[in-house]
Design a binder for these strands. Structure first.
Lengths: 104, 104
DNA sequence: TTGACATAACACCAAATGGTGTCATATATT
DNA sequence: AATATATGACACCATTTGGTGTTATGTCAA
């Protein structure tokens, strides 16, 4: 899919890709087995895996004729860090109210 | 942009939209002032605001001839909750190692 | 060695994305 | 009343996305 490098935020934007991460959280799996869990074609699965790879969220290793994919959750830290800025707003209803009133 | 309802994950996938949220975190702003902060056209900004609105991340209120946009960070909790599942993996290097070895 | 299996590599397609510009309308301002 | 400002509503466009199917190649197993 193009020369564009996908980042973590784009990678997790698609529900199918999030489901794929969930699946790989339990077990490392080859493409064929991943495909068996979804109603879409193997080709489509491979494209999603490619996007997840670009975002460094999964890593594939060829073993014999299979390519085993493994979850690599570290890049999600970037999302967590981004979110932490907004936690101040929802973590405390009073803080939220204060913020709403003061900011303009 | 179509009849599709955007969710939070799609909404935050775009860097411009994330920057818009950041901007609105400081102050409620009308469309014209939001536009002044970005190198793209007002039309493009309005489309991004529409996507953020669908995801309930911002809310616009018409005041006179202006439409003031306000941050509405609550839906980000969904992202936080989703992320919490993966925290087990990176929060602890030992747990990660254990997980890598045991899962297959 | 002959299939069967797993993946790679294409070509193709409809729809969504992210952007542009123009024109109309409503509201301030002078 | 005339003008400037702010937004709404379109029409348009190139590229990306998410999917399809087909064909080729490498590998395991009987």
């Amino acid at each position: 899919m193009g020369a564009v490098k996908h980042d973590v935020f784009q990678a997790i934007a698609d529900p199918t890709r999030r489901a794929m991460l969930q699946l790989l959280a339990n077990k490392n799996l080859p493409i064929s087995e991943i495909t068996a869990h979804f109603p879409i074609s193997r080709t489509a699965i491979v494209k999603h895996l490619h996007i997840l790879s670009e975002a460094q969220l999964v890593q594939g290793t060829k073993v014999g004729r299979e390519k085993i994919y493994q979850l690599h959750p570290e890049p999600l830290v970037e999302v967590k860090d981004w979110l932490s800025f907004y936690e101040q707003f929802w973590s405390n209803k009073l803080a939220l109210l204060k913020y709403q009133m003061e900011k303009d």
